[in-house]
């Protein structure tokens, strides 16, 4: 039994170390505070170990991110919720990204660097941001995102679509502000 427990701890540690950048990155992108992200990531790891016996053994990263997301929703969001952070209406219209854009993708994305993406992402309202992070950065399926956010799969679908549209707009605004887009367009 004791050896069984040690094996369990070793197995958990190996898996947790592997997915820790995802856990910490998601925590940081959600909380937008390094201190809160450290607390959230640490708490998620401890909770995960406590519940490790109930892990079904399929996708450890998705399971960990589900814990991080749930913890964030239950604990941090209530504390952090400010006037601009509330969810927008899930049923709102999804805007196309390409039609109204005056900036070609190549120009926009070739000039964008990681820090700008993070900054633009931080401006997206959190429910949409959460969906985009889990989908585009962490590569979770819609079902896994739905489980993590505790919403129907249809809601995930619309949040991802709207979140990407907002992210694209935010990146454009940033690029125009920085001035390099004009050069790129010309």
């Amino acid at each position: 039994m004791l050896f069984g427990r040690r094996d369990k701890k070793d197995a958990f540690e190996r898996q947790a170390e592997k997915v820790f950048p995802s856990v910490f990155g998601t925590a940081l992108r959600l909380t937008r505070s390094r201190e809160d992200a450290e607390d959230l990531a640490q708490e998620a790891i401890v909770r995960a170990y406590d519940a490790y016996d109930r892990f079904d053994g399929t996708n450890f990263k998705a399971w960990m991110l589900r814990i991080v997301t749930n913890l964030y929703i239950n604990r941090y969001r209530q504390r952090q919720r400010g006037p601009q952070l509330g969810s927008l209406d899930d049923e709102g219209m999804i805007e196309p990204m390409s039609i109204e854009s005056e900036i070609p993708d190549r120009v926009l994305f070739d000039n964008t660097v990681g820090a700008e993406i993070e900054e633009a992402l931080a401006k997206v309202p959190e429910d949409f941001r959460m969906a985009v992070i889990l989908s585009d950065i962490e590569d979770l399926s819609y079902q896994e995102i739905a489980d993590a956010m505790n919403v129907p799969i249809g809601t995930v679908r619309s949040r991802i679509a709207r979140g990407r549209s907002m992210l694209r707009k935010s990146l454009e605004e940033y690029a125009i502000r920085e001035g390099y887009l004009r050069e790129g367009v010309e």
Binding site: F24, F109, G114, I117, L121, V132, D136, I137, D139, L167
Partner: peptide, 8 residues
């Protein structure tokens, strides 16, 4: 987003 987002 996938290729340029930072790794923390």
């Amino acid at each position: 987003v996938r290729t340029k987002s930072q790794v923390f």
